[in-house]
Amino acid sequence: MNGESIKSNRPSEDKIIEIYGLHKWFGDLHVLNDINLTVNRGDRIVICGPSGSGKSTLIRCINRLEEHQKGKILVDGIELTGNLKNIEKIREEVGMVFQHFNLFPHLTILENLALGPIWVRKVPKKEAEETAMYYLEKVHIAEQAKKHPGQLSGGQQQRVAIARSLCMKPKIMLFDEPTSALDPEMVKEVLDVMINLAEEGMTMIVVSHEMGFAKSVAHRVLFMDFGQIVEENTPQAFFDHPQHDRTKLFLSQILH
């Protein structure tokens, strides 16, 4: 473990996520093995790797949907511990988009979006709904505001889910395989929204196998296997000159 970096836990201007010597086990299974990662404000990182490599678990640790057992995570200068107040504070600032959208089926689209701002940020209802409409227009879905999630297609639901996270005005957006549960013809509409977001300078960590997206949008690509970050590089170098055999094998499998 890197003792030096653990000590330097002062929040810095540009470091927004700092992970030092992170370990996590599910029972006996060592799912995260000594992860060290620093993300700067405005960074766009794509994480790929075979299934079970720990990539989803890693980003779920960042907003404490999973608890880590060893190491240190700092988000925007706040360390993630058992402290519930800190966890809630960090979750306000970290948006998350899930593979299966996880919209609230008993609420309308507008209510889905306004819920967080109203109850967590204590924004007045009217203002929250205006913000919600603004983001719905941004994801080109404003006309569906009064519908329930079940009435929308998968692509539309995922765009709503992205808008729901954005309504909280997060500093970081985490994407957990946002397109892998979608029908192929709907992948593009979701990726387009994500590309727009990237152009606006959002800090993004994306777990995805969309290599086209990684090439055009990411600053860095991480390859994970067996709970470790095997390789980390710019997209150019990552795809053109992969260093490790495991990376080469993986790329050959998904790029055909």
Binding site: L65, R91, F98, N102, G116, R164
Partner: peptide, 10 residues
């Protein structure tokens, strides 16, 4: 559903 609610900070 729990995770979505938690990730919003509820």
């Amino acid at each position: 559903q729990y995770e979505a609610a938690e990730s919003l900070g509820l």
